[in-house]
Amino acid sequence: MTILYGHEHRALQDEHDSRRLADLWQQMLIHGELAPEEQGFIASRDYFFLSTVDASGWPTVSYKGGAPGFVRVLDARTLAFPGYDGNGMFLSAGNIAENAKVGLLFIDFETPHRLRVQGEGEIVREGELVESFVGAAYAVKVRITDAFVNCGRYIHKMSRVETSRHVPTEDGQPLAEWKRIDAVQPHLPERDKAPAAQAGELTIEQYGEKVVAGTT
């Protein structure tokens, strides 16, 4: 388990008379191995939020989605998830390669319930793990340092939404509509140029109309 509280944490805790409570939560809730029910919760999720930090210390948070179970519990201290086709910036993956520290937030908006996981990530570029994820360009393996359930009282309750049609399957993956934008096509990776050209060009205005209509 990592050291959670530094000087400024303690100063704020003392300011709000919550040091005793903070110490209690650290003792009762925070652990380095996933309990069986936490493993099951993660395996049931079809999305999570990933926080990473770049070489300069700037954080970013991204949404990661897939079919239920796309985040795998390899063991009580290790998770893995696929890196799917993206926008080519590799912000999260590049950050992990540069600075291994990551945070993962798993939420159920129906219950509601949430689980926080912190650890060190590793980019896996090839091999059995990558091949085991349909449509993955790479995989991320996370060695867990801390996990804990967070109070769900401020989570807005929402019904389950439809799975994105872009989640890779054994049958393939639909072309991302933004790859059809005329100003983007010359800059696409070679593997995407022919499919994008075949699908037909879009102006940025036409793409914007599809975004508004929810057909992307």
Rank of each mutant, 00 (worst) to 15 (best):
M1I: 10
I3E: 14
Y5S: 13
R10Y: 07
A11R: 15
E15M: 11
H16M: 12
D17Q: 13
S18H: 07
R20H: 10
L21A: 13
L24P: 00
W25Q: 13
M28S: 11
L29R: 10
I30W: 00
A35K: 15
P36S: 05
P36V: 05
Q39M: 13
G40S: 13
A43S: 15
A43H: 03
S44P: 00
R45I: 05
F49G: 06
L50R: 08
S56P: 03
S62D: 14
G65W: 03
G65L: 04
A67K: 07
G69Y: 08
D75T: 09
L79D: 00
A80E: 00
F81P: 05
P82E: 02
G86V: 05
N87C: 04
G88W: 08
G88N: 11
N95W: 01
N95G: 04
I96M: 03
A97G: 14
A97K: 14
A100H: 05
K101D: 02
V102P: 00
L105I: 12
I107G: 03
F109E: 07
E110G: 01
E110K: 08
R116P: 04
V117W: 01
G119I: 00
G119L: 09
I123L: 15
R125T: 15
E126F: 07
G127A: 10
E128H: 02
E131K: 10
S132D: 03
S132W: 09
V134Y: 05
V134P: 06
V134K: 12
A136K: 04
A136N: 05
A136P: 11
A139N: 02
A139I: 01
A139K: 00
V140T: 15
R143N: 07
I144H: 08
T145P: 00
F148C: 04
F148Q: 09
N150Y: 04
I155T: 08
H156L: 13
H156T: 14
H156D: 10
S164A: 14
R165M: 10
H166I: 06
P168I: 02
T169R: 05
D171P: 09
G172M: 12
Q173D: 00
A176I: 06
R180S: 08
Q185W: 09
Q185F: 08
Q185G: 06
Q185S: 06
P186K: 09
L188F: 09
R191G: 03
R191S: 15
D192M: 13
K193M: 09
A194W: 02
A196D: 05
A199C: 09
A199H: 10
A199R: 10
G200T: 11
L202T: 09
E205F: 06
Y207G: 02
Y207H: 12
E209C: 04
E209A: 15
E209T: 08
V211P: 01
T215I: 11
